[in-house]
Computed example of a mutant assay.
Amino acid sequence: MGEKEMQDMFEWAGLTDVYEQHGYKMWLSGLEDSIDVELLDHFSDAYSFESAESMFYDEFLFHLRVFKSITKNNELPHRYW
């Protein structure tokens, strides 16, 4: 995924301010390989980034990784009951 596709993905999820602040770091770290549009959409619903200008990239990445882990590991297998 290129930089433009990643920017579009963040804009669609409503995280334009976060991408404008940290987009270059995201692209350099290869973040696009581990996230998708659906994850970002749910992430933007769960978290509020009103102070994106003062947030560090490491802080954003920490919250995203925790959210991804919770959503991945919180699902029960089919026919669990």
Rank of each mutant, 00 (worst) to 15 (best):
W81T: 12
S29K: 03
F10P: 00
D45I: 08
K72S: 10
L15T: 01
H78L: 10
F49Q: 02
V37C: 07
S29D: 15
L15V: 08
F67R: 06
T71S: 04
V37M: 11
Q7D: 00
W81Y: 14
V66N: 10
A46M: 04
H22S: 03
V37E: 15
V18H: 02
E53G: 02
Y19V: 04
K25F: 01
Y24K: 15
N73P: 00
F60C: 05
A46L: 05
G23K: 14
F49V: 04
S54T: 12
L76N: 08
E75F: 00
R79Q: 13
E32S: 10
L76M: 09
K72V: 07
H22G: 02
N73H: 15
Y47N: 15
P77L: 03
F43D: 03
K25W: 06
D8Q: 09
K72N: 12
H78M: 07
K72M: 06
V18W: 00
D33I: 06
H22E: 10
V37L: 15
A13N: 06
E38F: 03
L40C: 03
H42A: 12
F62E: 09
H42V: 02
T16Q: 15
A13I: 04
S69Y: 07
H63Y: 15
E50H: 06
E20G: 07
L40E: 06
M6Q: 11
D36V: 01
S51Q: 12
F10C: 02
S29E: 06
L15H: 04
W12V: 10
I35R: 05
S29L: 05
G2R: 09
M9S: 13
